[in-house]
């Protein structure tokens, strides 16, 4: 609960600091998905811990205090907050602000830098997200087409929650699409849209149970989408190479460079959104699928073995 509030608070802090795109992402990730993942893990592992000798705490406190004081001493040489001539604001940042209008032609500088100037960097990040999804799938047990579906009670008794969320869901999904495709002009883009989309599906499966959510979006489809997004991103890069440009240089995609940039950014943002949403939902499904009461899983395994032995002779 606290971590959700923490996420929401840091999101509002980012708005105050002019980082609206970042705030979008943090609001969806910090306040939504990470809280749920933590709670799910706690549900699996139990919420008790051993008490520890206080000597360890004292040494840790001392160490942390010393490092903290040293770091604060180090900040005395740092440039002051909010000055336009700070070293961080020179160099490439000024170049991006001056040239985006002619070279890329979209008003949102963050999207321009993310998708075009630093497109290769973003590709790397996307691959990391994809790999993390694969790693979670490899670590936690699941069958090919889904899970041993758990006996967690969907919130049947919370009528008000169910009805209001049902009303909200289409708007959340619509908003995710708006954020996805309006990212060139306002705050938004693939990463934000992906997490908002995933949050909507997670909300649905929290209210109506994993089984129902899997009927809406089946597990193989999610895994396919996760790979498809990365593939789309990479293919845009390869196509631009085939057309005679550099990897992920969208200017050569269409007749005019600006139109090419528009198309390229739209495509790769779509790829980003697809992969991020799919990986988030996939991680959530895998985690929630692991919350199985021991008795139930034993029963399911026994039933499966029974089927096998019946089929074998």
């Amino acid at each position: 609960m606290l971590s959700g509030i923490y996420g929401l608070l840091s999101a509002s802090l980012f708005v105050v600091l002019d980082a609206v795109d970042v705030a979008f992402t943090e609001a969806a990730v910090g306040a939504g998905i990470s809280t749920i993942l933590m709670l799910t893990t706690l549900a699996i592992t139990g919420r008790y811990e051993l008490s520890r000798p206080s000597i360890r705490t004292r040494i840790g406190l001392l160490l942390v205090l010393v490092i903290g004081v040293l770091l604060i001493y180090g900040t005395l040489g740092m440039p002051y907050f909010g000055m336009p001539e700070n070293p961080a604001n020179g160099h490439v940042a000024a170049y991006y602000l001056e040239n985006t209008e002619q070279q890329i032609g979209i008003p949102n500088y963050v999207t321009a830098v993310l998708a075009s100037y630093r497109g290769f960097d973003t590709f790397g990040e996307l691959v990391v997200v994809f790999t993390a999804g694969v790693a979670v799938l490899a670590l936690l047990p699941h069958s090919r087409d889904g899970f041993v579906v758990d006996d967690m009670q969907p919130m049947k008794h919370h009528l008000i929650l169910r009805i209001t969320s049902k009303l909200l869901l289409p708007f959340i999904l619509l908003f995710a699409l708006y954020v996805q495709f309006h990212g060139d002009f306002g705050p938004g883009g693939g990463f934000q849209a992906g997490v908002i989309f995933a949050a909507a599906i997670i909300l649905y499966s929290m209210l109506y149970g994993l089984e129902n959510a899997m009927q809406v979006i089946s597990f193989p489809v999610i895994r396919f989408c996760a790979a498809l997004g990365v593939l789309l991103y990479g293919s845009v890069g390869i196509v631009s190479m085939l057309k005679g440009g550099n990897f992920l240089d969208y200017s050569v995609l269409l007749e005019t460079p600006v139109a090419g940039q528009h198309l390229g950014i739209l495509l790769i943002e779509f790829g980003v959104g697809l992969t991020v949403a799919a990986v988030m939902v996939c991680v959530f499904f895998t985690f929630t699928g692991s919350v199985v009461s021991p008795a139930k899983s034993a029963r399911v395994v026994a039933a499966r073995d029974g089927e096998k032995t019946q089929g074998a002779p």
Binding site: V29, T41, I44, Y96, V110, A112, L114, L140, V279
Partner: peptide, 28 residues
């Protein structure tokens, strides 16, 4: 404001939740 750090952190947040998910999966 400077857009470059925004880009870096925007992607870092999504990457951090993915890596956290891997850590939690390891814990499970």
């Amino acid at each position: 404001s400077n857009p470059l750090p925004h880009v870096l952190i925007l992607t870092a947040i999504v990457v951090s939740i993915s890596t956290t998910a891997v850590a939690l999966a390891l814990i499970v």
